[in-house]
């Protein structure tokens, strides 16, 4: 009965109340279609700039929207913003290690573990997002941006193969595309940072 009511809530949210959840779920499931999955694993830039971010970001959006469900488990999770953020960050760091990336392409167990881990981490962080401290979110964002930029510079400049499953040309191409994408991500980060800072300032003034 409880499971039925929870499923009905979720279904109503998807189909009626929130197109973001529909959109995110659709694209998340699309990454698992065999041909799409094969394509995303075949090019380094697709893996790094589409597949891995898609798992985290789309599941984050679903988690963010599902916060409003009246559910005990979700309410409990939503209190642990810092833990969820650190778990997500640790997961992303793990999968950025070249050896982990290699295994996620040619090893079946790791090919399953990657989406499970990142989707789980993104989803939990989406639920607990609002309770994560602003300072912690900002600090991890800055660190994440720096790592992203460093990755692009290393991939484009290194003439030795870092990931064994891709070629040196793919590595350089991935570096180039990371450097193309970086400014947009940076501007988005700055926008969110100033927006959140202005909100914080307003709250302080009101208090």
């Amino acid at each position: 009965m409880k499971l039925q009511s929870g499923f009905n809530n979720f279904f109503a949210m998807i189909m009626i109340k929130n197109p973001w959840v529909t959109f995110s779920l659709f694209f998340l499931l699309a990454t698992f279609i065999p041909n799409v999955h094969k394509l995303l694993n075949s090019e380094m830039y697709l893996k790094m700039l589409v597949q891995i971010p898609a798992y985290s970001i789309l599941s984050f959006i679903i988690g963010l929207k599902l916060r409003s469900l009246n559910n005990k488990v979700i309410l409990q999770i939503s209190k642990h913003g810092s833990s969820a953020l650190i778990f997500l960050f640790g997961s992303q760091t793990f999968w950025m290690i070249p050896r982990s990336l290699d295994l996620s392409v040619y090893n079946e167990a790791f090919a399953i573990l990657l989406p499970l881990n990142l989707i789980g981490a993104g989803f939990l962080f989406g639920i607990a997002f609002k309770s994560a401290p602003f300072v912690l979110k900002t600090a991890f964002s800055i660190y994440g941006l720096a790592m992203f930029l460093a990755m692009g510079i290393i991939y484009i400049n290194f003439n030795s193969l870092i990931c064994a499953v891709f070629s040196i040309e793919m590595q350089h191409l991935a570096g180039k595309y990371i450097l193309y994408v970086f400014p947009f991500v940076f501007v988005l980060f700055l926008y969110r940072l100033f927006y959140n800072m202005s909100k914080l300032t307003e709250e302080i003034i009101i208090q």
Partner: peptide, 19 residues
């Protein structure tokens, strides 16, 4: 825990590539 996992996974933060 994550520090420990990555430390173990990379052989003491020294071996990041498969090679």
């Amino acid at each position: 825990v994550w520090i420990g996992v990555i430390l173990w996974w990379t052989g003491g933060f020294r071996h990041f590539t498969s090679y």
